[in-house]
């Protein structure tokens, strides 16, 4: 079983709203919902403690996910404080954003030398393609969020899980771009993610087959910096886990503090196979680097 060491803690993630979300998407790999409190909100002090610890470890960037981060009552304050430490990215479904929050965040980003990135999840370029996966009316609600962000001067990265046939990718991407431009987002940014066959997605499509595992031989010539667990950890209300993908697996929980969670991790999950195939799927394009030539 191949094991991957943490080369350096580049990206510190926060599972800031646990598994709580206002939506119940059919492909959610950790089955978030309004009632799933398996993982709860991170309180502000927990976030602060880890931000402070992250300085000693030389963390480069911060990412916030859930669930829906903006269900957290102190989300704005958390981002404002994070921007004093480094660049921040928040993964949102875009449906609950409020003007006052965005105005506060706009000012905080202008004051900081760091970027605040919003990644808004939308899984189709129309209500017909998006809503069956994310829920009735979610396309229009998310698009209102996108345009609100644009109004406040942000350049949201639209993040879509690949729920279409890969052969249709070019068409889907150009439909996305055309739709966003037509709606008033003049320079759309787009990130396409592979789906993870975990949680709800396992029922929507299928889980991982036993043969879909990473082996030692596969990693021999592989550029390991492509794997999130090689340069990241995630803080949850139960402790620090190896990566945002596997938080529900008992073996993913590594320790109580960042310092306790720096040990190598065995890639014995089906999802690791998706990472192996697609690389640093959770990072922003500005933080990715090409694979080394093999």
């Amino acid at each position: 079983m191949p094991s991957v060491a943490l080369s350096h803690l580049d990206h510190l993630w926060f599972q800031v709203s646990g598994t709580l979300c206002n939506l119940t998407c059919q492909h959610c790999f950790i089955r978030c919902s309004p009632t799933n409190d398996q993982f709860g909100y991170l309180d502000l002090d927990t976030v602060r403690r880890h931000l402070a610890e992250s300085v000693r470890l030389g963390v480069k960037e911060y990412y916030f996910t859930g669930g829906e981060p903006f269900l957290h009552r102190q989300m704005t304050q958390i981002l404002v404080e994070t921007l004093r430490y480094g660049p921040a990215t928040v993964l949102t479904n875009g449906t609950v954003l409020k003007d006052e929050w965005l105005e506060t965040l706009r000012l905080a980003e202008a004051d900081s030398c760091y970027s605040l990135e919003f990644r808004v999840s939308i899984d189709g370029f129309s209500a017909e393609t998006n809503d069956p996966i994310r829920g009735q009316g979610t396309f229009e609600r998310a698009m209102r969020g996108v345009l609100k962000l644009v109004d406040f001067g942000f350049l949201p990265i639209i993040t879509a899980a690949r729920t279409w046939d890969i052969l249709q990718e070019d068409t889907v991407v150009s439909c996305f771009v055309a739709m966003l431009k037509k709606r008033g987002y003049a320079r759309p940014r787009l990130k396409i993610l592979p789906t993870l066959h975990l949680g709800a997605e396992e029922e929507r499509t299928h889980g991982y087959r036993r043969t879909e595992r990473v082996t030692d031989a596969m990693l021999e010539t592989f550029d390991r910096t492509q794997l999130i667990c090689e340069h990241s950890r995630i803080v949850t209300d139960r402790g620090v886990c190896v990566c945002p993908i596997l938080i529900e697996s008992p073996d993913a929980l590594l320790g109580g503090t960042l310092g306790d969670s720096l040990q190598p991790f065995s890639l014995n999950h089906g999802a690791c196979y998706t990472c192996y195939q697609y690389g640093a799927i959770c990072s922003n394009p500005s933080s990715q680097s090409a694979r080394e030539p093999e």
Binding site: V55, E61, S115, S286, A290
Partner: peptide, 20 residues
């Protein structure tokens, strides 16, 4: 540490550079 790593001003924290 990596020839093709992007170090942008707005995505590179000071503590990371201190570490380097």
């Amino acid at each position: 540490r990596k020839m093709n790593e992007f170090l942008w001003e707005s995505t590179t924290s000071t503590q990371f550079l201190d570490h380097l």
